[in-house]
């Protein structure tokens, strides 16, 4: 692998990892609300969460741009409080990737929370466990495989993010030019077929690896979930 390709892969991994780490708590909170909450507007929240899945990614990127622009609602807060901007930065790429990965992660985590047998939680309560301890010792360990599988899936999705990223933070070498953007760029250059081929192979390998890992985790969980 040449230095340039290696840099692209490292940047992509960094962006993907940051995206997942930031999104995971949000995804978990949303999944919890959707799995356990009873409130008005649940259908609407469900719809909003899934929006990035069906919306043209360019629209998602444009909305992020509006929000994070210096005069935008989020951008102004970030600038006032911390004096930072995520525009044209790898952090912005991570945010775009995280938003696009959110629906997949929420789905996986929600399913795993719903598959936790509530009767086991009741049993824990009668044995003297507070709601917090019940969550820590019963709910979380039993849903952990789903959370992990969802995170790996989200990571794979984040690695592949293109439309929202290029709209939101542009295509800057070494900063926001992740794997898909590098492939797109190489395609614009005559005679760069070799580079495209190499980058595409890496993308396939990473994506397939992540999908298989996610599936293996989920299957393993299936075995552990037998309840007498």
């Amino acid at each position: 692998m040449t230095g340039a390709v290696w840099d692209v892969v490292l940047l992509s991994l960094k962006v993907g990892l940051a995206a997942i780490l930031v999104t995971l708590p949000v995804a978990f909170g949303l999944a919890w609300l959707l799995a356990r909450g009873r409130f008005r507007g649940k259908v609407l929240l469900d719809g909003l969460v899934h929006l990035p899945l069906v919306l043209p990614p360019v629209v998602t990127g444009w909305l992020l741009l509006l929000a994070f622009a210096p005069a935008g609602p989020v951008g102004r807060v970030l600038n006032d409080l911390m004096g930072v901007s995520v525009l044209f930065r790898w952090t912005g790429a991570a945010i775009a990737a995280g938003v696009m990965a959110l629906p997949l992660m929420v789905r996986a985590i929600r399913l795993s929370l719903e598959s936790v047998d509530r009767r086991l939680e009741q049993a824990a309560r009668t044995l003297g466990a507070s709601p917090a301890r019940t969550f820590r010792t019963i709910t979380l360990p039993l849903s952990l495989p789903g959370i992990l599988a969802g995170s790996v899936l989200g990571f794979a999705r984040a690695l592949g993010e293109f439309g929202a990223t290029i709209t939101f933070v542009s295509n800057i070498p070494g900063e926001t030019r992740t794997l898909p953007l590098a492939i797109y760029t190489a395609l614009q250059v005559p005679g760069a077929e070799d580079a495209v081929f190499r980058l595409a192979l890496i993308a396939i390998a990473l994506s397939l690896g992540a999908l298989i890992l996610s599936e293996l985790i989920a299957r393993r969980a299936g075995r552990g979930l037998h309840v007498l």
Partner: peptide, 20 residues
């Protein structure tokens, strides 16, 4: 009282052992 403070030893029909 919440369940955890009732000191009930509940033996459920389906045992409900923690599978993990």
């Amino acid at each position: 009282l919440p369940p955890e403070r009732r000191r009930a030893g509940y033996v459920f029909q389906d045992a409900r052992l923690f599978p993990h």
